[in-house]
């Protein structure tokens, strides 16, 4: 579990998206920057959508006796 992927920060991503769209709507970006912003925005959107679709609930358990959490299977509980 040491290499556990950092969970996607959706809030941050949504914020980024919002900023990108705002910047684009302001029309102050150069055309090139607009296109870059567009690509970045679509990329974030896709990532988030994919992450949401693929997400599996990951549960572990930490007891006071151990220093490392162990995987917890709610079905066996």
């Amino acid at each position: 579990m040491a290499s556990r992927k950092k969970p996607l920060d959706f809030e941050e991503k949504l914020h980024q998206l919002e900023e990108l769209v705002n910047d684009m709507e302001k029309g102050t970006l150069s055309l090139e920057d607009s296109l870059k912003a567009f690509e970045a925005g679509i990329k974030i959107t896709r990532e988030c959508q994919q992450a949401l679709k693929d997400a599996q609930l990951k549960v572990d358990m930490l007891t006071s006796g151990s220093s490392e959490p162990k995987v917890f299977d709610p079905e066996s509980g």
């Binding site: 949504l14 769209v21 684009m24 055309l31 567009f38 959107t45 988030c48 959508q49």
Partner: peptide, 20 residues
Amino acid sequence: LLDQLRGYEKLLCETISRRL
């Protein structure tokens, strides 16, 4: 959230096409 993302996607596409 998915709806929101779709909304952003649409907004992005609209904005860039308007810009173009």
